[in-house]
Amino acid sequence: MPILTLKAVSKSFGALKVTDDVSFDLSDGEALGIIGPNGAGKSTLFNLITGNFAADSGQIFLDGRDVTRDSAMKRCESGVGRSFQIPQPFGRLSVYENLLVAARFGGTVSAADAPDFCMDILERTCLAPQADREAVGLPLLQRKRLELARAMATRPRIILLDEIAGGLTEPECRELVATIGKFTLPARRSSGSSTYCMPSTASSSA
């Protein structure tokens, strides 16, 4: 059974139809790239899947369950993790606390397990040395890493990476893709995680 199914999902902003009758299946362990020029509606599609926007018509299924009317919080708990195109860290919280929020809420990790759980992700994303720094002053690559790390801390079954490599230099981009690779399938296949990636520019689609 596919982990994520979109059936004829449409969304308009006024007269502008941004998402027009989109349907696809995503199966467990699959990585899917969505490519399009600026304004094609990639981020809108993401926001529809995460529940930040409500679809005008069509249905979205997660593990065969209709989640079209679920809130963003509920979908996060059901296993939809996301990173934002423009990094949106919790600025006055530390890097570690950014993950702690995600783990304790969306990831429903217990208070006892959370510190180790978060540190493990921080080590994998090479953010461990910055753990106690305020998130607001991080350079772009680190902020992108934090977006990924925070999304992973919600223990997603599907992760949506919105232009995760946008704005990075070529070497930075390769570094980030290697980090993403560390999270993909083998480690989490047992728990049924799948990765779903959205590079939009040629340089970022590795």
Binding site: N52, Q88, P89, F105
Partner: peptide
């Protein structure tokens, strides 16, 4: 907005 998307 980010808080909502991590389940808060």
């Amino acid at each position: 907005n980010a808080a909502r998307s991590v389940g808060v």
